[in-house]
């Protein structure tokens, strides 16, 4: 159960990146899973390097988040590539992000090879909590807290700040936003980078608990995709609720009847698409 919430926290971050980009740029970014995987590998490398250089192990959480943020620097160039097809049919946009998935897969293979990368047991440094017969690493709770904090921060950013209002205006009506002097290319670049950062931080946070693996990107995208469909495309609140549903459901299914792990989720996805195609928590962008 708690494992489910932990998974949900990470899933939320990746799905939120997907939502943000879809909400504003109307591009369903298949490559968001790749950002997540990149974040994981880069996080392992940076923490390993930092610990080797003598950084105190208790700082590793900070280093992980930092690695995710640093990695978001790939956002602007990738967005520049996507910009060439903003005015095309969405089939082409989907395919271009699929091309990115293929390319990033090999980028990861090139730098990190095919063997899983692990951080070892450094995450136990925050100690473990004993609740009855269960032993829970405190780190998992830290990640859940971090996920919730980031969710709140993104919510605050979009609803309460000037930047957020400009983003919402551009998401609703980009042509009109331009006529009011909003520099769309710059805004898109920033939004996309923020979306990338959510994915990479999500990937970085997960690796102390599991190993970074080649397939994690393309596996995550289908889960993140389930999250956004259940929650409603483009809705941040939906991403939050959807991630919780998918995360907890997965945990419950694994505990009770493992065969149903993903099957159950797809059944829900299809049911939601058929019954409420706009999602359970549909609302205008963001």
């Amino acid at each position: 159960m708690l494992g489910g919430v932990f998974h949900a926290a990470v899933l939320f971050l990746a799905a939120a990146g997907l939502q943000l980009v879809f909400g504003v740029q109307k591009i369903l970014n298949l490559a968001c899973g790749s950002f997540y995987a990149l974040g994981a590998y880069f996080g392992v490398s940076l923490v390993t390097w930092a610990l080797g250089a003598g950084a105190p192990p208790s700082l590793f959480l900070g280093i992980l988040i930092l690695s995710g943020v640093l990695l978001a620097a790939i956002g602007p160039p990738v967005e520049r590539l996507l910009r060439t097809i903003y005015d095309r049919d969405e089939s082409f946009q989907l395919l271009l992000t699929f091309a990115l998935v293929l390319m990033f897969e090999d980028v990861i293979r090139f730098f990190w090879g095919t063997a899983p990368h692990q951080l070892g047991s450094v995450y136990l440094i925050y100690g473990q909590l004993k609740v009855g017969a269960l032993t829970i690493p405190v780190y998992n709770l830290v990640v859940i807290a971090a996920g919730a904090t980031i969710a709140a921060a993104v919510g605050w950013l979009l609803t309460r700040t000037r930047f957020g209002r400009l983003v919402r205006a551009a998401a609703e009506n980009p042509r009109m936003a331009e006529a009011l002097g909003i520099d769309l290319p710059r805004l898109y670049s920033r939004v996309f980078t923020l979306g990338v950062a959510l994915g990479t931080v999500g990937g970085a946070l997960v690796i102390p608990a599991t190993a970074a693996m080649n397939e994690m990107g393309i596996e995550l995208i289908v889960e993140a995709f389930a999250v956004v469909v259940i929650g409603g495309l483009g809705s941040m609140r939906g991403a939050f609720a959807g991630a919780l549903i998918v995360g907890v459901l997965k945990a419950v299914a694994i505990a009770i009847y493992p065969e149903l792990e993903m099957l159950g989720i797809y059944v829900i996805v299809i049911a939601v698409l058929v019954l409420r195609p706009a999602g359970l928590f549909a609302r205008a962008a963001a």
Partner: peptide, 27 residues
């Protein structure tokens, strides 16, 4: 150059006040 289009195209997701303020942030 300010523009008010035929279909009004106000931002439904923002409040009336925010709609007006937006223009003061960009120029």
């Amino acid at each position: 150059v300010g523009f008010s289009p035929e279909e009004s195209e106000i931002f439904g997701d923002l409040t009336v006040a925010e709609n007006i303020e937006i223009a003061t942030w960009t120029r």
